[in-house]
Design a protein around this nucleic acid. Structure first.
Length: 269
DNA sequence: ATGGTGGGGAACCCA
């Protein structure tokens, strides 16, 4: 294979938005698509419909009502079964696979980091504490494995680390997703694996870059108060293969849109 | 300071 296209999307209910996957495939043509917030118990996952949309290889880890991740693939893979049970909660926020590609397997990790609630104070807000604990655990795990090699990490990390990953660095300073403690935690995680930020590889750090716009805006496009919550990281040895990227902003205007848009990165292997 | 809009699934939980 000449290229490997990996996409990630917080689909916010795989059953409700499963028809939109055809739009995504038409626009991005991904070899592998990682989903978050599938909100679907495993026994109800729409396996056959998604296979029919061109993804014969599917892994899903879901639960009733909340969370849930899935990997949809044209390429065979093996599910990793020995990854941590994050914060001992068993709450379906991570799925790791080994993609069977020429040149040896590529590890792919699909993460859905806790959103963290409204108050950025771990003493009064257990959701914020969970978010920080989750990232701390992931960082320790990453560090224990050494610098990432032939690996890609994607997902809704629910943190916008850079100044221009939010519409206003000043006004977002105290808002969960862009507080200094979260930014420090995320950049520490990234550093622990020597990961490369694939989207910022393509988009200069002085340019705005968003993947999420709130449902609560009267006109999301006019106000454009977005955040970059969705990420693609690649290991150092793959950074030189980064050949293309796409943030599918038009998806925010699809009927019954998710509040996140799909993001795609292409590797020239 | 507040509430704004969604999804899940049947009262509030979560984002």
């Amino acid at each position: 294979m000449a290229t490997l296209r990996i996409a990630t999307w917080n689909i916010n209910s795989v059953r409700l938005r499963r028809p939109l996957l055809a739009e995504l495939v038409a626009a991005l043509d991904p070899d592998v698509l990682c989903l978050q917030e599938t909100k679907c118990p495993d026994e109800l996952f729409p396996l056959e419909e998604i296979r029919a949309q061109g993804f014969p290889h599917i892994a899903h880890r879901g639960m009733k009502g909340y969370n849930g991740v899935a990997v949809l693939s044209r390429i065979p893979f093996e599910i990793r079964h020995d990854d941590p049970n994050w914060c001992s909660k068993g709450d379906c926020r991570h799925l790791g696979v080994a993609l069977d590609v020429p040149g040896g397997p590529i590890e792919l990790h699909d993460f859905y980091v806790p959103a963290g609630g409204d108050t950025p104070d771990r003493e009064v807000n257990p959701k914020f504490a969970h978010k920080l604990d989750f990232v701390a655990e992931a960082t320790a795990w990453t560090r224990s494995r050494g610098p990432a090699r032939r690996s890609v990490l994607v997902g809704d990390l629910n943190i916008a680390p850079c100044e221009h990953d939010v519409w206003s660095h000043k006004q977002m300073f105290g808002v969960v997703s862009h507080t200094p403690v979260e930014v420090e935690a995320l950049t520490g995680w990234q550093a622990a694996g020597e990961w490369h930020d694939a989207l910022r590889h393509f988009v200069p750090s002085d340019q705005k870059l968003y993947t999420w716009w709130s449902y609560r805006a009267k006109d999301w496009e006019a106000s454009d108060r977005g955040r970059r919550l969705d990420h693609v990281w690649v290991s150092g040895d793959l950074a030189g293969t980064l050949s293309r990227h796409q943030v599918l902003k038009p998806a925010r205007n699809w009927p019954q849109a998710s509040d996140h848009v799909p993001v795609m990165v292409e590797l020239a292997l």
